[in-house]
Design a protein around this nucleic acid. Structure first.
Lengths: 222, 222
DNA sequence: TCAAAAGTGTTCCTGTTACACCCATGA
DNA sequence: TCATGGGTGTAACAGGAACACTTTTGA
């Protein structure tokens, strides 16, 4: 509802990118070069363009700042504390981005010192209000895992049920019963067998599954 | 993450105010006078001020445009389609506001033609993208009702279990079993008896209850 | 005494949990 | 042959759903 008003606020987007690897839930952070946040880490983000939605901006920024493409994006919340950025008022529409870890080839631009995956348990010092944003993102992800099949966006096309269970356990931070987990997932027809078998461990090969729908569906999973 | 950028985007907030009355879930809308949306109805909203969070702006705007104070507010989502407002680019941080119907004394300013409660089933033609915003708000409210005690913000301090059940039924759009509902609500200790009795119907007086916590708590209610 | 809403228990069924052993493979 | 993870069934329990009649009041 536009009215004349002297407003000097920029609109930005920030995306908390998650993946599961090395037995942990990881967030992708970039290290800043410029003052006043030099050396601090941050979630990728930036100002949106005039004719761009925040979601498109998030995709563009993910690609340029981190090399991530094809992430699954969901709007998280908008952070608008007037003091969240020391350089001026910036309202940020934050997203959660989920990506299968093997898809990612990291790269950044010279504007940033580094890009790295960090375990969500022990994050480095974060710029802006990004500590809060990441915390909200983690709890949203946990909640969604329980009643949707979002895990599909964290796994490769085919995977074993153990991989799927590991993903759940890592994100939820608790162990799940193997038999009950498999029964539930199969009964709900969230995944289907491909007929293929996994190769290469010094153990019995596992059946490979794929998600029945590679888009978000709702069901009480746990 | 501010960077030099020629951005001409305004930040606004819109609040979908719900209450339950006359056996229906109602949303509060105002009727616009100005072109290009004259005659159309809209959710209350407006541009945020330079040093104001969107939530504070929502409270201020609710008060001036509708007379509603003391609503329970929750951020819903941010709507940012570049074409959502014909007059220029406006990104809107939308809220859901819940209020007990007897608290409200409606009034508006001369900028608007009318303020009215509308049943969410049959809304009048809405300006901007407010049809979408209201639809998202309704589904969010339904979902939240199932796993939180948000209903407290829709009811007076004390109420009967039948009133509470009516609130649930109206929002969810389905009938609930009386005995099961009462048992569940009481077992979860969401409400507690006050010892008072309701007055005045041509029927047996009902025990009055109050919420154990007048703030959001989580539990699988249904 | 009638109408209207309040209040109350039990049974059945379904879904959740807990739990331990054999299987197939590569080294 | 051993180590490693893959794969499977059943019994006990808890929570959810279905269901009908008696009580209290004001008119």
């Amino acid at each position: 509802m536009p009215q004349p008003a002297a407003q000097n606020i920029k609109v930005a987007t920030d995306a908390v990118i998650f993946t599961v690897r090395n037995g942990g839930l990881m967030a992708l952070l970039i290290q800043m070069k410029k003052e006043p946040y030099a050396g601090k880490w941050a979630v990728p983000g930036g100002i949106i363009e005039q004719d761009e939605t925040s979601e498109r901006a998030a995709r563009r920024i993910l690609k340029t700042q981190t090399g991530v493409t094809d992430a699954h994006l969901e709007q998280l919340a908008t952070f608008d504390d007037p003091k969240r950025d020391r350089l001026g008022r910036v309202v940020s529409v934050a997203y959660v981005a989920l990506v299968a870890s093997e898809k990612v080839v990291l790269k950044t631009t010279e504007k940033y010192a580094d890009v790295r995956w960090w375990g969500t348990g022990k994050l480095p010092p974060l710029a802006y209000d990004h500590k809060v944003i990441v915390a909200v993102a983690v709890s949203r992800l946990r909640a969604k895992l329980e009643y949707t099949n979002v895990a599909w966006s964290l796994l490769p096309k085919t995977f074993t049920l153990s991989q799927l269970q590991d993903t759940y356990e890592v994100i939820l931070g608790r162990a799940l019963d193997k038999r009950n987990f498999r029964r539930k997932i199969l009964d709900l027809r969230i995944v289907e067998a491909t007929g293929e078998k996994s190769q290469g461990g010094a153990h019995r090969p596992a059946e490979l599954f794929q998600f029945a729908e590679r888009k978000t569906a709702y069901a009480n999973i746990l």
